[in-house]
Simulated assay, not measured.
Amino acid sequence: MASKAMNHSVLIFDKATEELLNEVAIPDRHAEQLKALMGWASDEEAIYEYELLPAQLRRLERMIGISLETPDAIYQLSCST
């Protein structure tokens, strides 16, 4: 990843209300795996927010060892620097 620290997390929103239900941090040690999972060609792409597809979510869960499944939820990958 870029030299500036990027803190990624998964934001979990309720589909009906769009209320934020949970935020799960992705440890920095997974930065390169995350880049590959998301298909980022450059470090700059890592700063945006992305809606996660079901397959991406499952791979991310295996990567970080945490179940993120929440009924009727929207999952987004977020970055803060």
Score class of each variant (00 low, 15 high):
Ile26Leu: 01
Arg29Leu: 11
Ile12Asp: 01
Arg62Leu: 12
Ile64Phe: 05
Gly39Gln: 03
Leu57Pro: 06
Glu51Thr: 15
Val10Cys: 02
Ala41Arg: 13
Met63Asn: 05
Ala55Met: 07
Arg62Asp: 12
Gln33Glu: 09
Ser78Cys: 02
Ser9Ile: 02
Glu23Met: 08
Asp72Pro: 01
Asn7Glu: 10
Leu52Trp: 02
Asp43Ser: 11
Lys15Ala: 08
Asn22Pro: 00
Ala73Leu: 09
Ala41Gly: 15
Arg59Glu: 14
Glu49Leu: 03
Ala31Phe: 00
Glu44Thr: 12
Ala25Phe: 05
Asp28Ala: 14
Ala25Lys: 10
Met38Cys: 08
Ala2Tyr: 09
Arg62Gly: 12
Ile64Gly: 05
Asn22Tyr: 00
Ala31Tyr: 00
Gly65Lys: 08
Ala46His: 01
Ile26Cys: 03
Ala46Cys: 13
Pro54Gln: 13
Arg58Leu: 14
Asn7Ile: 14
Ser3Gly: 15
Asn22Trp: 00
Ile64Arg: 01
Leu11Gly: 03
Tyr48Arg: 14
Asp28Leu: 10
Glu61Leu: 02
Ser42Ala: 14
Thr81Glu: 06
Leu68Cys: 07
Met6Leu: 13
Ala41Asn: 12
Ser42Pro: 02
Leu52Thr: 05
Ala25Cys: 07
Glu51Val: 14
Ser3Lys: 15
Ser67Asp: 13
Ala16Phe: 04
Glu19Thr: 07
Glu19Val: 09
Ser80Ile: 07
Ile74Trp: 00
Thr81Arg: 08
Asp72Cys: 09
Ile74Asn: 01
Phe13Met: 09
Lys4Trp: 04
Ser42Asp: 10
Ala36Phe: 04
Leu21Lys: 12
Ala25Ser: 10
Leu52Gln: 05
Ile64Val: 10
Leu52Arg: 03
Ser9Leu: 11
Arg29Val: 14
Asn7Leu: 14
Ala55Gly: 02
Leu53Ile: 07
Lys4Thr: 11
Pro71Leu: 07
Thr17Cys: 09
Leu53Ser: 12
Asn7Lys: 15
Glu44Gln: 14
Ser3Trp: 11
Glu51Tyr: 12
Asp28Pro: 03
Ala73Ser: 11
Lys4Ala: 07
Ser42Ile: 09
Ser42Gly: 10
Gly65Met: 09
